[in-house]
Write a protein that binds this DNA or RNA. Structure first.
Length: 841
RNA sequence: GCGAAAGUGGCGGAACUGGCAGACGCGCCGGACUUAGGAUCCGGUAGCCGCAAGGCUAUGGGGGUUCGAGUCCCCCCUUUCGCACCA
């Protein structure tokens, strides 16, 4: 048998790559660059199969591109700030810094045992001051430009844990940790003005041709642009109310106005109400209900009449103003005109409370419906009726006219609204980047001067899990002197959302050790954009949108010259077992370390790429992994079998005087080169790339059986067995190509085989084989003949047979004749392929 | 409700621009080699009819375009994912 020992090979070559710095790179203007990026990892402590899959996919591309002659940047780092470390500290008392750095060390070892070709000399961790110092720098720049600002806003507050929760930590309206009902609380928070870039972020999605449709669609929905109009409704005995609508064409049907419970006018109405206490009590119930209900799902539409009236500026009619629980305060103006005949929500509300329904739009080809008998609102565009001077005109054309008229009369204007909101970045947490701001009683909000960066996170803090940010309990951190007046001042004690860290890390990799600037612009100019970005779909919106935003901010600051950071995106599918995502609680976790220990890194890598297309879910199977291991043994055995005979220098060239079997193997070799190259580089169909390699190996076994040596199963080649030089040349060509193309998937085995074949240069630096179309072209092809769409015969003909010849041969074929005699041949089509199609009757 | 994707053997999945459906692997069946093998190698493996040659039926369902449809068009069903009262 063979002496194939995968774990020894893993160690040997990993050591070699580390010693040689094989994957370390420098910018080199003379060579084309390729930036291959795997989403950096949160150091949870243990790499799981999802990581293995993610990084294997990236590594196949990185290794392949390297062999294709590109200067490949393939870095890795750690998204090292975040809540879990702090929660662990609350639980166990271990300082977040220690647990994080320990976790990084452990996970790094795990990834290195997978043989991913990372430039480890560029490793970064966001929890280190040399990194987060530049988060603070960016913050200050954004503050200068008005892109970072402070405002009061509503947050999720757990009254039991006494802290703010992120939206993701609120499950069905309750705290994830203690289960208490989450409250809304008003806090002063820092925001990044991502809405300033909303339109650009939306428009530019059209340029992302190599992103999955799904991700582009999700971002488009998230930004949520809608065009409409802002219209002023005067209030009887009070200030005007402005509403936002996308359907100004229905305004003659607006029979009441609805306010969100949080609308600023509500408090004034309460004050002026006959019974302010009852009014406030009803509003309060909506405000409290609203938050929880919105997280759990649909709520019944409820509201009450404020008793106040507004004037519909188009009809001049007095209409009631109601407060409704389904109106969103944070969208538009927090107030809407209700058109029950043409909006389903307004319709339901009007029916419930007996409010008037007035039809003003008639769909093409329909009768004017009777409001009383409508089963539902009619929401389509159509011709206006009962709409004053606009009656008889058609929407959507009339919308522009109405907006223009409103503008002329000073009662409204066209407006574009976005669902996207500004990004709240304040976190009342310890384990994050301190926000570099100082509050002075005299000078107000004062940015920390650039030369005082970084604002270092203090090493010591109490992690009780109670109270505000742990930083607020450190007088030596909080109490400072004002940089402006030198008087006593207090530091901001909130830290930044960790999504800030990950919004520009890909730029830091271009120049990771720079202490003066985020990165040298020249370095980013060379390496950016990221050519291939691989990661989970869970980042489809936030991380990718924030990164696109940051790239634009840094562009406007002048550090980069690009709009979009990621040219091509691949979102890999999840790894499942028994149909469920692997998780400790389900007890279905497969430990990558154990698999690597048993089968070696290569078998696991091969399995991850072979068993499913990269973007689809992958169902784990032990048997499947063993199958991949067997394949590697098969490769090893066939190379080992021939290595003595074909190894070394002075191999004859593959000539013209080959036997049919030799020609067939050459053809297979070159066809495999073509397919594997396209499958990796263009299509990212790694599973079919692997299956092509398997086919080539099967072919090599079959070919070997037909030689004097016999196949690899024979213990020893017969004494004195001699092969034609052409046979050996053809074999050498096939085996070289196989080993090189296998190496992105199974680098350790491939390097060893490459060395056994007598190569001195590392395989990692070898050249990818080139495809020769002439060799791949078959001299004979099998041409199917269809009769009335069914294949009835197959002709073996010269590849260069003309259409006429094919037609003639097809009709002369015995099997074809069986189906055509006694019938009329109506048509014969010769298609490229080739294929002959005969139509008979 | 809106948006996106997907339905192909026992299973994971192939099928590139409309051109031989089921590549490759797993599993299963048979054979070889063996003291033995759960190692390895070789062969078979969509279903139905047939001794066979061969034939028929098959890519969620129903229509259509075409010499030819898993692929294109229309309608419907199912599943997964994302957003979810955005006025």
């Amino acid at each position: 048998m063979t002496d194939f020992k995968p774990t020894e090979l893993d160690k040997k070559w990993q050591q070699h790559w580390t010693n040689e710095g094989t994957f370390e790179v420098e910018a080199d203007q003379t060579r084309p660059k390729y930036y291959c990026l795997d989403m950096f990892a949160y150091p949870s402590g243990h790499a799981h199969m999802g990581h293995v899959r993610n990084y294997t996919i990236g590594d196949v591309m990185a290794r392949m591109k390297r062999m294709r002659g590109f200067n490949v940047l393939h870095p890795f780092g750690w998204d090292a700030f975040g809540l879990p470390a702090e929660n662990a500290a609350i639980k166990s008392g271990t300082h977040p810094e220690k647990s994080t750095l320990d976790n990084i060390a452990h996970m790094k070892g795990q990834l290195q045992r997978l043989g991913i070709s990372y430039a480890w000399n560029r490793e970064i961790a966001t929890c280190l001051p040399e990194y987060y110092k530049f988060n603070q720098w960016i913050f200050l720049k954004m503050f200068e430009r008005g892109l970072a600002y402070r405002k009061r806003s509503t947050v999720n507050w757990c009254p039991s844990c006494n802290t703010v929760l992120a939206n993701e930590q609120v499950l069905d309206g309750a705290c994830w940790r203690c289960g208490s009902a989450v409250e809304a609380r008003e806090l002063e928070q820092w925001f990044f003005k991502i809405t300033a870039y909303a339109d650009e972020l939306l428009q530019s999605l059209d340029t992302l041709h190599d992103w999955p449709d799904k991700v582009v669609a999700m971002q488009r929905n998230w930004i949520g642009r809608s065009e409409g109009a802002r219209v002023t409704f005067p209030v009887v005995g009070g200030p005007d109310i402005e509403i936002f609508t996308t359907r100004i064409d229905t305004i003659f049907g607006a029979t009441f106005v609805l306010l969100a419970p949080e609308h600023p006018m509500v408090d004034r109405f309460a004050r002026e109400a006959p019974d302010p206490a009852t009014f406030r009590e009803r509003v309060g119930r909506f405000r409290a209900l609203d938050r929880e209900a919105r997280l759990t799902g649909a709520i019944d539409k409820e509201g009450f009449d404020t008793g106040r009236k507004a004037i519909n500026p188009f009809t001049k009619a007095e209409i009631p103003i109601w407060i409704a629980n389904f109106v969103l305060a944070e969208y538009g103006t927090g107030a809407i005109m209700a058109v029950p005949a043409h909006d389903q929500r307004d319709f339901e509300f009007a029916r419930k409370y007996g409010l008037p329904i007035k039809v003003v739009v008639v769909e093409a080809g329909r009768e004017t419906p009777a409001a009383a008998s409508m089963p539902d609102a009619s929401t389509n565009y159509g011709r206006l009726v009962d709409s004053g001077e606009y009656s008889g005109q058609d929407a959507p054309a009339v919308i522009g006219r109405m907006i223009a008229d409103a503008e002329r009369q000073g009662i409204g204007r066209g407006e574009t609204q976005y669902r996207l909101k500004d990004w709240g970045i304040s976190r009342q947490r310890y384990w994050g980047t301190p926000i570099p701001i100082i509050y002075c009683e005299k000078d107000g909000v004062v940015p920390v001067p650039y030369d005082q960066l970084p604002v270092t996170l203090p090493k010591v803090a109490a992690f009780s899990g109670r109270g505000d940010s742990p930083l607020a309990q450190l007088p030596e951190f909080v109490n400072v002197t004002c940089p402006v007046c030198g008087g006593p001042a207090k530091r901001e004690t909130d830290t930044m959302d960790t999504f800030v860290d990950s919004s520009w890390y890909f730029l830091r990799f271009c120049d990771p050790a720079n202490d003066d600037v985020l990165f040298e612009p020249a370095a980013a100019a060379y390496w950016m954009p990221v050519d291939f970005y691989v990661g989970g779909i869970e980042h489809a919106i936030l991380h990718l949108l924030y990164s696109r935003f940051f790239t634009r901010v840094l562009r406007d600051i002048g550090l980069v010259k690009l709009d979009e950071p990621f040219s091509r995106l691949l979102t890999q599918g999840m790894v499942l077992k028994e149909g469920a995502v692997m998780s400790k609680s389900k007890g279905n976790v497969v430990d990558p370390d154990a698999m690597v220990e048993k089968y070696g890194a290569d078998a696991l890598r091969l399995y991850m790429t072979f068993v499913a297309p990269p973007e689809k879910e992958l169902e784990w199977s032990d048997a499947g992994l063993e199958g991949c291991f067997r394949f590697l043994v098969r490769v090893w055995r066939v190379v080992d079998h021939w290595v003595e005979t074909i190894g070394g220098e002075g191999m004859p060239q593959c000539g013209d005087d080959c036997t049919p079997a030799e020609r067939a193997l050459r053809r297979k070799t070159h066809e495999t080169i073509r397919r594997v190259t396209i499958d990796i580089e263009d299509r990212m169909h790694l599973n079919t790339a692997v299956s092509s390699l398997m086919e080539l190996v099967n072919e090599l076994y079959a070919f070997s059986e037909g030689t004097a040596h016999g196949g690899p199963t024979r213990a020893e080649p017969p004494a004195g067995a001699m092969e034609r030089p052409q046979t050996l040349a053809v074999l050498r060509e096939a085996i070289d190509a196989l080993v090189v193309m296998l190496s992105p998937f199974a680098p350790h085995v491939a390097e060893e085989l490459w060395q056994m074949l007598g190569n001195v240069e590392d395989l990692s630096r070898a050249a990818w084989p080139s495809f020769d179309a002439d060799v791949a072209r078959a001299e004979e092809v099998v041409v199917p003949v269809q009769i009335n769409g069914k294949v009835r015969a197959r002709l073996t003909v010269r590849a260069d047979a003309s259409e006429d010849e094919l037609r003639e041969l097809a009709l002369a074929d015995a099997a074809v004749k069986n189906h055509t005699t006694g019938k009329t041949i109506r048509k014969v089509v010769v298609a490229k392929g080739p294929l002959v199609s005969v139509v008979v009757q």
